[in-house]
Simulated scan of single mutants.
Amino acid sequence: MFKHIFRQIPSISIFELTQDIARNNLVLDVRTPSEYRAGHIPFSKNIPLKKIDTYQGSNQTIYVICQSGVRSRQATKKLRKKGYDAINVRGGMNQWSGKVKEGK
């Protein structure tokens, strides 16, 4: 009955994300639109956590990022329940040191 509670959510570090970016994987940013506009990974797509249940996308690996890793973990869990190969990015944008794009 409680078996699913202890199922680990797959996650990677920011360093691992920068290595996998070269493979053209999808990065979903689950922060609010205003947080996203303030600065995001240039090729990421904004799908706020409150709208993640409506996400419909491709079968490619999805890396999920937020500000610190809490919301992205929740979103990753929801996406995996829907059958997506979703991976949480630990530390979120707080750990990102690459280029940042402002606006949409």
Rank of each mutant, 00 (worst) to 15 (best):
M1T: 13
K3P: 02
K3H: 11
K3A: 12
K3G: 12
K3C: 10
H4K: 14
F6S: 03
F6M: 05
F6R: 06
F6W: 12
I9H: 05
I9Y: 05
I9W: 07
I12A: 06
I14R: 07
I14S: 10
F15H: 12
F15R: 14
E16Y: 07
E16A: 11
L17C: 07
T18I: 11
Q19Y: 08
Q19I: 11
I21M: 12
R23P: 01
N24A: 14
N25A: 09
L26A: 08
L26D: 10
L26Y: 08
L28F: 05
L28R: 07
D29Q: 05
R31S: 01
R31E: 01
T32E: 12
S34W: 09
S34I: 07
S34T: 10
E35S: 12
E35Q: 10
Y36T: 02
Y36V: 00
Y36A: 01
R37F: 09
A38T: 06
A38W: 03
A38I: 00
G39P: 03
H40W: 09
I41V: 09
I41L: 07
I41W: 01
P42F: 06
P42V: 04
S44Y: 08
K45T: 13
K45E: 11
N46A: 06
N46P: 05
N46V: 02
I47M: 08
P48H: 06
P48G: 03
P48V: 01
L49F: 09
L49T: 08
K50W: 09
K50L: 10
K51A: 13
I52M: 05
D53C: 09
D53R: 10
T54G: 10
T54M: 11
N59Q: 15
N59T: 15
Q60D: 15
Q60N: 14
Q60C: 07
T61M: 08
T61Q: 08
I62H: 09
I62W: 05
I62Q: 05
Y63R: 00
V64L: 02
I65P: 03
Q67R: 13
Q67V: 05
Q67S: 12
Q67N: 12
Q67C: 01
S68K: 14
V70A: 13
R71G: 07
R71V: 06
S72C: 05
R73S: 13
Q74I: 14
A75K: 00
A75V: 06
A75M: 04
T76R: 00
K77V: 06
K77S: 15
K78P: 02
R80G: 05
K82H: 09
G83S: 05
G83P: 00
I87W: 00
I87H: 01
I87S: 00
I87R: 00
N88W: 03
N88V: 00
V89Q: 04
R90V: 11
G91D: 09
Q95C: 09
W96K: 04
W96T: 07
S97R: 15
S97A: 10
S97H: 09
G98M: 04
K99W: 08
K99E: 14
K99I: 09
V100I: 15
K101W: 04
E102Q: 15
E102L: 15
G103E: 03
G103M: 03
G103D: 02
K104G: 11
